[in-house]
C-alpha cells in the first residue's frame, strides 16, 4: 500500500541518471565502458608472475643446457655449445635414459591393469554412498603426503618387513626368494630391487590413472555395454571389443600422468631400489653435489622431449577430451 500512498515521490522530476558516488563508481564505470581494461587488470599480476617466474625459468633451463662446465675450474662456461647434449649420448647416460623410459612404461602398464577394475566398478556399479566412497577412496591417496606414502613402502618392502613376515607365515618364502633371484629385476631384498621400485611407483601414481579412466568410462552409455552382452558376447569379448576401445582416451590421458611422473621422479628410486640411477636422480645429483648445472639441465630436457612426443601421439588419439 505504501507505494501508492506516496504521490509526492512520483511527482518528482524523473531522474534518469544517479549521481556518481566516489572512486569505486568511477573505476567501475571505466571497467564497464572498457571490459578489456578490466580483463587486463585482472590478468596482469598472475600473468607477469607466470611468465617471468615460470616461463622465464623454463627458458633458463634451456639456456643452461646449452652451457657447459669447465673441466678444470668446475665453473659454468656461459657460451653456446652442444657438447653438453653430446654428453648425454655417453653409454652411461644413455643407460639412465633407457632405464627410466622402460620403468615408466612398466609402471604405466601395471597402472592400467590395476586401475581398470576400480575405474570400471566406480563408473558402472557404484551408486550413491558407494560412489562418494570410491571417489574419496581414490582422491585421498592421490592427495595425501607423497613422502609418507613412499616411506610406508619402505617399511613394507624392508628385508625384515611385513612382506617377508607374511611369506614366511604362509610358507611361501621360497617363492619370494625365487622372484628376488631373477636376473635384472631381482635383488638383495624387495626394497633394493627393480620390483620394489616398480611397486612403489605403481602405488603412488595409480590414482592418476584411475580418475581419467573412470571419467572416460562414465561417458560410455550403459546401454552400449548391455547391448553387447545381449548380442551374446562373452564378458571378455565385451571388454576387449567395446569397453576397452571406449576407455582408451581415458587410459591415454592417465598414462600421460603415470609416464611423465615416473620419468621425473628421483625420490622413489633413491629410497627404494638398487643403486642404478634414473633421470631424476641424475638431474638431482648433477645440480647438487656434482655442481654440473648444464648437464643437469640437459638431462631435465629429456623428459620434456619424450613427453612432447608422447603428447603429440596422444592428441591424435583424442586423449585430451578426457582430461
Amino acid at each position: 500500500m505504501s507505494l501508492t500512498a506516496e504521490p509526492s515521490r512520483i511527482a518528482q522530476p524523473a531522474r534518469a541518471i544517479l549521481p556518481t558516488r566516489g572512486l569505486g563508481d568511477r573505476i567501475s564505470a571505466l571497467f564497464w565502458r572498457h571490459p578489456n581494461v578490466l580483463l587486463i587488470t585482472l590478468l596482469a599480476l598472475p600473468l607477469v608472475w607466470l611468465v617471468v617466474v615460470y616461463l622465464g625459468s623454463l627458458a633458463a633451463l634451456l639456456l643452461q643446457s646449452f652451457y657447459s662446465i669447465d673441466e678444470f675450474s668446475g665453473q659454468i662456461r656461459r657460451e653456446f655449445t652442444l657438447s653438453t647434449y653430446g654428453e648425454l649420448l655417453q653409454p652411461a647416460n644413455l643407460d639412465i635414459i633407457i632405464r627410466t623410459v622402460a620403468m615408466s612404461a612398466a609402471v604405466t602398464l601395471g597402472a592400467v591393469v590395476i586401475a581398470f577394475p576400480i575405474a570400471y566398478f566406480a563408473a558402472r556399479y557404484a551408486k550413491g554412498h558407494w560412489k562418494a566412497l570410491f571417489y574419496l577412496g581414490v582422491m585421498l591417496p592421490l592427495w595425501s603426503s607423497y613422502l609418507v606414502k613412499v616411506y610406508a613402502w619402505k617399511l613394507i618392502l624392508a628385508r625384515e618387513g611385513i612382506i617377508t613376515w607374511a611369506t614366511d607365515g604362509i610358507g611361501a618364502s621360497a617363492v619370494l626368494n625365487g622372484i628376488l633371484a631373477l636376473p635384472v629385476i631381482g635383488g638383495n631384498s624387495l626394497s633394493t630391487s627393480y620390483i620394489g621400485t616398480w611397486l612403489v611407483f605403481l602405488y603412488v601414481w595409480l590414482p592418476y590413472m584411475i580418475l581419467p579412466m573412470q571419467a572416460a568410462l562414465e561417458r560410455v552409455p550403459q546401454s552400449m555395454l548391455e547391448a553387447s552382452a545381449d548380442l551374446g558376447a562373452s564378458c571378455w569379448q565385451t571388454l576387449r571389443t567395446v569397453i576397452f576401445p571406449l576407455a582408451l582416451p581415458g587410459i591415454i590421458a592417465g598414462s600421460i600422468f603415470t609416464f611423465s611422473l615416473t620419468m621425473g621422479d628421483y625420490i622413489i628410486p633413491q629410497i627404494v631400489g638398487s643403486s642404478r640411477r634414473f633421470i631424476g636422480q641424475a638431474v638431482y645429483q648433477l645440480q647438487g653435489t656434482a655442481g654440473n648445472i648444464p648437464l643437469a639441465a640437459a638431462f631435465a630436457v629429456v623428459p620434456i622431449v619424450i613427453m612432447l612426443i608422447y603428447l603429440t601421439i596422444a592428441r591424435r588419439k583424442g586423449a585430451f577430451d578426457a582430461l
Partner: peptide, 15 residues
Amino acid sequence: LPGIITGMSLRSAFS
C-alpha cells in the same frame, strides 16, 4: 610437468 622440471628450471634461473 614433472616436478623435477619445474625444480630444475628454477634452479637454472637462480644460477
